[in-house]
Structures are given as structure tokens and as C-alpha cells.
Design a binder for these strands. Sequence first.
RNA 1: UGACCCAUGGUGUAAUGGUAGCACUACUGAUUUUGGUUCAGUCAGUUAAGGUUCGAAUCCUUAUGGGUCAACCA
Length: 551
Amino acid sequence: MSEEKSLNFLEEIIEEHLKQGTYKSIVTRFPPEPNGYLHIGHASSICLNFGLTKKYPGYTNLRFDDTNPETEETEYVDSIKEDVRWLGFEWKHERYASDYFGSLYRFAQQLIDKGLAYVDESSSEEIAALKGTPTEPGKDSPYRNRTIEENRDLFTRMKNGEFPDGSRTLRAKIDMAHINMLMRDPILYRIKHAHHHRTGDEWCIYPMYDFAHGQSDSIEEVTHSICTMEFIPHRELYDWLIEKLEIYPSQQYEFARRNINYTVTSKRKLLQLVNEKFVTGWDDPRMPTISGLRRRGYTPESIRDFCDRIGVAKRDNLVDVGLLEFCVREHLNKIALRRMVVFDPLKVVITNYGQEEEILMSENNPEDEGAGSREIPFSGEIYIERDDFMENPPKKYFRLAPGQMVRLKSAYIIKCEEVIRDAEGTITELRCTYIPESKSGQDSSGINVKGTLHWVSARHALLAEVRLYDRLFRVEDPADEEGDFKDYLNPDSLQVINKVYVEPALHGATPGERYQFIRKGYFVLDRESNGNSLIFNRTVGLKDSWAKKGG
RNA sequence: UGACCCAUGGUGUAAUGGUAGCACUACUGAUUUUGGUUCAGUCAGUUAAGGUUCGAAUCCUUAUGGGUCAACCA
């Protein structure tokens, strides 16, 4: 019965490998650098790498590419681990490139011994000058032909801290005229007298990406090393090093990173937004970070579903954020508890109801009978949404208007009899009558109304704060615009409503529960809430075909 | 004026020489005690030109367009 889902190009490669017996099982890795928080683009890579070893025999390691102590911190390591777990994945081994500094150092010595690496004393400017350009070959460094003994000695002294930062590098000896710039004697090691988040002051030389990543893959016997397309030119060097070092032949495969419109996914840019206070932090709910999405109320299920739907391929892309929103709505619709909250209150007095009150029942989730129901107090004075009333309504307006009837959700049908105004002419109150026989669940009135409104009983309502979020940028692709990307921030990305009126059932709201404020959207309790205050973040609004029609 | 990667509806992704499909979006309509959900339907695509073939989105050539490469970042 089940329709076979087509394979992405990596799954095809792996199935072929498994079929041919190239591998019996596979090993992948997710290799973040701990210099920032993970974002939605990383989620794609996480789902890919971990997803592959869920589908095929094998496992996935979490490996931190921590070879640049100047930008890396333990805070980032912790956040990355939390985010991967939250997304629902468990790694086999937790590893660090820094675990391999000793092996990497010995690999470098082997290269020196084979005459394939040398210590260069050129400055970074001099190296750049001799590098050539994509269309012109480079020139050999004057230090290129030192003896092996000299190189060994110099490299040892680099490690021993005898030289200042930037004064020397270890370079592979390949070909300065190579068509691939990365093969023009790439730098393997540089001197940095910097404190490393894990190895402390043990080392003052650190390997470059190209001399750490592939070697780490190899040490872990990673079979399929999956990275993004900008690393394609690195593959030649990746292979060269593995061949010369005669180590386990991990293979690199590349896919196109996923881009999403109206946001940026560059750790450098996100860091800028954080540092320059354009957002409140890495987990600001407007951020495309995993932690931001989590605080915003996204579920791991919805993010996994999103990654699954956008797929894996090799072409440039700009995915519509609307798809992410669709995924979270789809999930939240099934699990969110329905609650009634009035954002902009308009008082309604039900003139024939009297001073008493009663308890009504309402289902917690019409999509899930198991979610049960809750009690809602009703009384003769309630609040409805100000924009649920119009004095001169257009055709097909189903809400309240003079002489018109609406259903109050889970309660009665009411009819608007009178509009009360203050001295300025602002509507301050509506006088309505209710139809006693129309009680929800036992309606014998025979009246059919088109509109149903949410409401809260005025004397039972609690106060809360809601934070409404919109896209962070006003343009689809901020990174592609002229000038500073920050000039394209959306000034209305955050709207705070300090006082909204919520039904009493929200009193014990917990951060783990998801809510749908009926007709308003999906909300989650923010971590800044406490015993005295309820603060809700809007995850995403409901689809609104009335607003779209210009209603 | 080099090398490499890529090109299918508005967006994302399938079709692996044999009926261009799926999802999102948009638009209709039905249902609805959320103008939500659900259901039914509609619009919409192979960058171009040659070639190979009975047959090409798929293979070849050229062109065009987009991306990547000149960090002691990853």
C-alpha cells in the first residue's frame, strides 16, 4: 500500500554502496564549530546526517570542529548539544577535533618527513601576494625548499612556543600553479597563543580546517562526510591529504545549503544582531536559530517535517518561510489546547442575563477528543474583540453588528440591541440580549448564525501579556541586498500587547503546553513568565481568509 | 574573462531514455459552534538553440543565467 518515497541523491549513493558491499554500515557526523548557535539551516544538516543513519545501518557522531580558539566557547558547545537533542537526535560519540590535536600534530610531522610540508616564514600579506588569483598561477615561497630536518626543527619549535603569532605557518607542498587555489600550498598549521575552551594552554599551534576536518573524519572512520556546496573545491585537498597520510578514506559529498526568505542564516550575521542588540539574544523568538524557534513555540516535530519536505539537492534555493509556518500549524492544530483570549476588549452587557453566573464546558481540542474539556465561567458582562463588531458592516460580515446575532463560542447566541458611546463618540459598550434556549450543546432555539466569537467573562478574566512576532526582515533575501543587511530589518517584527484578557483556565499555563487562542493563533508561555505574570509568545497566526479578502 | 557546481509551475522537490507527478502558495466551492480544521476542485513548469534516438526534462554540443573559489575562518 505505502507509496515508495523517492530517494534523494545521497540516499541513492548510500543504497548503491550498501548494495555493492562498499560498506556494510555507514558513519556520518554532524560537525558544528562552537562559535555560535545552531539555526534552521543546521537543522537541515542535522536531520540529514542523523536521518541517514536512522534509515540505514550505522551511526552518527557529534563532532565539534574546534580548531579556532579565538572564536569558540563552551557556551556554544552546550547550546549545540541541547539543540540537537531537542530536535530529537542522539549521537553515538561526542567528539572534538581538539581530541585529535596530538594525532594531527603527528600527521603533520609525517607530511614533513615525506617532503610534503614546509615551514613558511612569510607574512600573511606575502603569502597572499604569492598566491596568485583564480586566473593567474601563484609563485613559490622562498622558504619552500628547506630541508626536511630544518622543517622538522622549525615545526617543533613552533609547537614549543618559540615564535610569535603569525610569524610562521606550516604549509603543504603541492603546486603553486595549481588551477585549484586550495591546492596552492595550503596552510596546515598557524601559531595562536590563545586559550582553547578544552585544551587550555596546551597548544599554541592550531590546525586549519582543511587539516583537521578530513583527518577527524578519517580517525572516526566516517564513511559519508556530508557538507555544503562551498566545500566542493576543498574535496581535492581532502582527498590529497588522506592519500598522502595513508589513512582511512572517508569520502566527502556536498549538498546545497537551505536558505529561507525574510531571514539570514549566517552565524556571522546572527552574531552581529545579537551583539549589536537588534534582538534580545540568540534565543530571541524572531531569530531563525533553533533556540529562537523553540522559544517561539515551534515543535521539534514541525521542524523535522519541514526539513523533510524541503528535501536535499544541489541547486541554489530560497525556501518560502510559509512552508515552515504551514508545518508548525499542522502540528499545533493537532496538539494545541484551545483557549479564549481577548486582545482588544469591547465590553458587552447582556441585559437579560442578570447578576448570576454559570459554568460552561468547552472542548480543549476539537481535533483530539482525548484532550478532554474545561470549565469556563460565563456572566452578564463579557469582553469580545473590538474588531468583532462593526456598526455599518459590509455584506457577508458574520460578526456582531446592530440588530445582528452571533454565537458566543461554547455559550449562547446573543443579539446586539444598542451601542453605547462616550463623549468623543468612541464605542465603549454594547448592550445585547441572549437567547436562553441557545445554550451550547443543548440548543433548542432553532436559530442559525454564521458567526462565532471568542469572549471572556469580565469579572473572571485574568490579565496577560502577549508578544506578536513578524518576519525579522522586510526583504526576501537581506544578504542579497545592497549595503548593510541590517538596513533591511523589519521595524515591526515585534509587537507587545501588555494587557490581554484571558480565560481563567490559563492560570496554570505551563511552558510545555501549546495553546491555540481561538481565532488568534498559536501561543506558548515565554520563559520570562513567572508567578505574577503570564507572558505568551505567538508562534504563528491562524490562516485568515477573511483578512485576506480585505475583510 | 580561468576552473568547478547548478538550471523542472510563484516556492521546494520527483520522474534515472517511454503518460512531467507531489507538497506549499494562490484561487473556487462544500462542511464547520474557530472566517481555523477537513473535503472537493482550478490555475500554473522542463532556460535556449542544435544534435543522437522510434521516442529526450533525462544523453551530447554550444549558448544563456545563477552560484562558488584569491581568510594564518569553518
